[in-house]
Amino acid sequence: MTPVGTTGGTAAATEKPAAPGARAGAGANLARLPDIAPLVILLLALGIFFSIKSEFFLNYDNFLNILTAAAITGIIAAPATLLMVAGQFDLSVGSGLTFCGVLMAYVADKQGIFAGIVAALAGGVLLGLVNGTLVTVIGVNPLITTLATLAAFAGLARVIADGQTLPVNGFSSLGTSRPIFDIPLPVIIFAVVVVGFYVLMRYTVIGRSMYAIGSNPVAARLTGLRTGRLIFAGFLLSGLFVALAGLINVSQLSAASTQAGNGLELSVITAVVLGGASLAGGRGTIVGTLFGLLVIATLNNGLTLLSVNSFWQDVARGTLLALAVSFDQLRLRLTRE
């Protein structure tokens, strides 16, 4: 006869591991879930909702408006994704865009458009050099570094412009022309940047090295990767594309405003994190960032069509960022279990 205690012990033994197993299964399933899957669902849901609420949402011109609105943020978000994959981030992109735009307008007024363009690109390189040097050579934390340059370059822009908006004449083509199929040039540039960074991050040694640095910087260094040089190059790329975005912004407005880049860093980080990049590094894709951008741009566009106060767009971006970071932490926690 089997003792009563034996039967009970056997049942308990088979029942107790079920909960940890279930948790592990849930964590594995969450980890295997494609980063863009929730974004695709959210994007479809937003599209259906705004199509029902506004007759102006579901048309070709409005889709171009959404892509145009996402272009400047997306051009900056591409190198930001590369940096975040390596465990780095750049909070100075908003003030960098403002600084490059103001520098372009100031120099163009005195020396001509071409000189202004060169000055703006030089300003972007300067931003990347300062950030890269402070982070990789001196060893300052990237958060502190880019917060400092955010304030410094915003101040420099106001000094150069004397706090005023500087007009720029004869420079509208970059931001407003439609050379192919009536598609705005900024959207075409944005598409080229996305494809370029997709190839860079997926198929090149540099891209794979950035993933390795973000996953385990010590191991990456021990395997011979020049982590400092790669991160420095990442900040340089960020500065250059900030300058490009600044030029597009000036071209669209025919002016350089000292407020042009306000809050841009929040939009960039939200798009990158929403797209599946981890603040801890080692994970993230350009495709994910693209869908994150589209979600944000669609939400902003829909709220505008519904005549919702523009301040609610900031609330929406902040909420999306909080949700994206929370989802990232939940994924990491369940994966560890």
Rank of each mutant, 00 (worst) to 15 (best):
A122C: 15
S307A: 14
Q313C: 04
L332A: 15
G25P: 01
A219C: 11
E15M: 10
R331K: 15
A243L: 04
I113Q: 08
G292S: 01
V130H: 10
V140C: 04
G101I: 00
R333A: 13
S209D: 10
A316Y: 12
G132V: 11
P79T: 02
L244F: 04
F99W: 11
L236H: 07
L174G: 06
V118M: 15
Y211Q: 08
S278Q: 12
G228Y: 05
V93S: 09
S172A: 13
W312F: 15
K16D: 02
L42V: 02
S278I: 05
T10F: 10
I189C: 06
I248N: 07
L244C: 05
V168M: 08
A78H: 05
M210A: 04
Y198Q: 15
T165E: 14
G196A: 15
A260R: 11
S177V: 00
G196W: 03
D162R: 13
R229Q: 12
G261I: 01
L121A: 11
T227P: 06
P3K: 15
A316Q: 08
A80T: 11
C100I: 03
A161Q: 13
G124I: 09
I66K: 12
F171P: 06
A105G: 13
L222E: 12
L230C: 02
V325N: 03
Q88D: 07
A28P: 01
P17M: 03
V218E: 14
F232K: 12
L247E: 03
I138P: 05
V102E: 08
L266W: 02
I72A: 13
V4H: 11
N216G: 00
T258F: 08
P79K: 10
R331N: 10
L39H: 09
G27I: 03
D61E: 14
L82K: 10
L156C: 14
L305R: 04
I286Q: 03
N301V: 00
V159I: 14
I213E: 02
L240T: 00
F99D: 09
F63L: 14
T223D: 11
V273F: 04
T165F: 00
G132R: 15
I76L: 15
T73S: 11
I76A: 15
A245M: 08
D61Q: 15
L147M: 12
T165A: 04
F99V: 05
R226T: 05
W312S: 07
G124F: 11
L33C: 09
N216L: 01
L91C: 06
A191D: 05
S92F: 07
S326Y: 13
G214V: 00
S307F: 08
A19C: 00
A108F: 11
P217A: 00
G276Y: 14
L230E: 13
N300M: 06
F197L: 11
G124C: 13
L126D: 10
V295P: 09
A80D: 11
I66P: 06
M1K: 12
A122L: 15
N65S: 14
G21C: 00
A37M: 13
A45P: 03
G275K: 06
G139Y: 07
L97W: 09
T68E: 13
I189S: 07
V137G: 05
L247Q: 08
V130F: 09
T136G: 11
L299E: 02
L299P: 05
